[in-house]
Amino acid sequence: MTSATATLLELEDVGRDFDVSRPWLNRVIEGAPRQLLHAVDGVSFSVRKGETLALVGESGCGKSTVARLIVGLYAPSRGRIRFDGVEISAPSASVATAGMRRRMQMIFQDPFASLNPRWRVRDIVAEPIRVLGLATEKAEISARVAGLLRQVGLAAEDGDKYPHEFSGGQRQRISIARALSGNPEFLVCDEPTSALDVSVQAQILNLMTELQARLGLTYLFISHNLAVVSHVADRIGVMYLGRLVEIADAEELFARPRHPYTRMLLDAVPDLEMSGRQRTPVAGEVPNPLSPPTGCTFHPRCPHANDRCKAEKPNLTWRGAVASACHAVEENRI
C-alpha cells in the first residue's frame, strides 16, 4: 500500500459521558445526585488509509462506544473526530459532515438484530444505494444488489428471501453486503464475529480480509478476542475502563506487551497448542465504571502498582511506535 501513511481518521481527546441518573422526580425525592458515566475518556488515536486498527478490551471498556462515536450514532461530549481532515464531530451536522459520513459504514455484532426482520434481503442491501442516491434505475439497483450478494458469497436469488431464512453466518454476510453497498472506504466493525460459531467466524474473517485487499478498505475492528484480532489487525489499541492504555503495531504488541493490562489479557488467552502453559488467572474484576478507582484505574488489579499509581492518572506516552499509559513503564520499573 503506497498511501499507508496517510491518516484517514483521527480522534483527539475524545470523551463521552452518559447520564445514568435516576429520573428527575426520584432525584428530587431521594436527594440523589446526578450521575455521569464516563464511558469514553480522553481517547486519541488515528487510523491510516488501508490499515486495520483493532480496539480490544473487556466488556464495559468503551470500545463499542468509540465505534458509535465515529459513525455518528453518539455525539462526543468532548474532543474532536476528523475524517480525511474534516471535522465530523461538530454538533451542527453540516453538509461536509454528511459527505464524510457516507464514506463510512458499520457492521454490527448481532446478526439477528442487525437486519430488519420485515424486509427482504434485496431491500436491506439496496437501502444505502437508494438513500445515498448511488443509483435510481430499478434494473441498475438490482444488478448492484446481485453483485454485492455474490461478492459476499451468497447467491443473487437469496435477495428474495427474508433474514430469518438464513443462518447467523449468512446474515453477517448480508450485513457486510449492506455495508459495502454504499461504496464506503472505511468500515467500523463492532465485534462482527463474536456471535458466530468458530467455523463460521473463520469464514467471515477470511471474507473481510479478502474484501479489504480487493477494495482497499480501511477497518476499525472492535473485539474482545485477542486471537481474532491477531488475524486481522495491523495495529492494536487496548482499552480499559474508557481509556486507551496501550497502542502499538500488532506484532510488537504480541511480542512485547508494555502495559500490565495488555500482559494480563495476553496471559488470559487459552492455550490451544497444549504446550502446558497455564493461563495466569488474574485477581479481581473490572471495577464499577460509575466509581472508578483513583489514579490509574487499573491499579487495584496491577501487580506493579505503587503509591503514584494510586494517586496520579497516567497519560498515554509514546516511545517509538508504541504508546502506553502506565507509570511503571514510564519509570522503567517493568
Binding site: 453466518g169 467455523s199 504480541f254 488467552v269
Partner: peptide
C-alpha cells in the same frame, strides 16, 4: 476443520494475515 478455524495468536515471524482454515457451509 474446527481446530484449524480457531484463531490463534501468532508471533511476529508468522505471516499474520494468512487465511484461517475454514469449513464451508453451515451446520
Amino acid at each position: 476443520g474446527l481446530m484449524g478455524s480457531i484463531p490463534k495468536i501468532r508471533v511476529a515471524t508468522d505471516r499474520m494475515h494468512a487465511p484461517l482454515v475454514q469449513i464451508d457451509g453451515a451446520m
